[in-house]
Amino acid sequence: MTAVASQDSFGAKSTLDVDGTSYEIFRLDAVTGEGLDVASLPFSLKVLLENLLRTEDGADITADDIKALAGWDENAQPDKEIQFTPARVIMQDFTGVPCVVDLATMREAMAELGGDPSKINPLAPAEMVIDHSVIADVFGTPEAFERNVEIEYERNRERYQFLRWGQGAFDDFKV
């Protein structure tokens, strides 16, 4: 579920045409006003500002939130939280497996309470990358890759079965 802005207080919503394809964008230069100098913001804060413009809803993210970030003062003491809504979450398996366990547990609790467990899903598209658990037991032969994959699946069969279940059970979750 990608957050969609229901407000555009600064008129920042625009389109960018590239080779005949139009993309929806939110222009940072639309955020203007006294004490606001968007051009001088560090790149990381520009990314956060674009996120606020894209997800402004008037409730959780307001024009005041956008102005507060656009008027950032590096010498001031932080006094306001920055709302951030990721468009996608990428996890590696060490942290991702516990997240899937938590979601599965929440589904179980929802069912026990008489609710609809299928309503428990990641709030943003989530992708898990399993990238570091493979051990090279076999090497130096043409079949080394295939054999190492076989051994990996044998060692971690339960984990992979659980993740396969999670990929099928949850919306917007890929392994």
Rank of each mutant, 00 (worst) to 15 (best):
T2K: 09
T2G: 07
T2S: 08
T2Q: 11
A3I: 06
A5P: 11
S6F: 05
D8Y: 09
F10A: 04
S14Y: 07
T15I: 12
D17T: 15
V18K: 03
G20P: 09
T21H: 03
T21F: 02
Y23E: 13
E24S: 12
F26P: 05
T32P: 01
G35N: 03
V38K: 04
F43W: 14
S44F: 05
L45C: 04
K46A: 13
R54N: 08
T55S: 10
D65R: 07
D65S: 11
Q77K: 12
D79I: 02
D79L: 00
K80E: 08
A87Y: 13
I90F: 08
M91N: 10
T95K: 00
V97W: 01
A104S: 12
A104L: 03
M106Q: 08
M106D: 08
E108N: 14
E108H: 15
A109Y: 11
M110Q: 14
L113Q: 13
A126G: 09
D131T: 15
V134E: 14
V138N: 05
V138F: 00
G140T: 14
T141F: 03
E143T: 07
F145Y: 14
N148K: 04
E152R: 11
N156H: 07
E158K: 11
E158F: 03
Y160L: 13
L163V: 05
G166H: 04
G166N: 07
G166T: 02
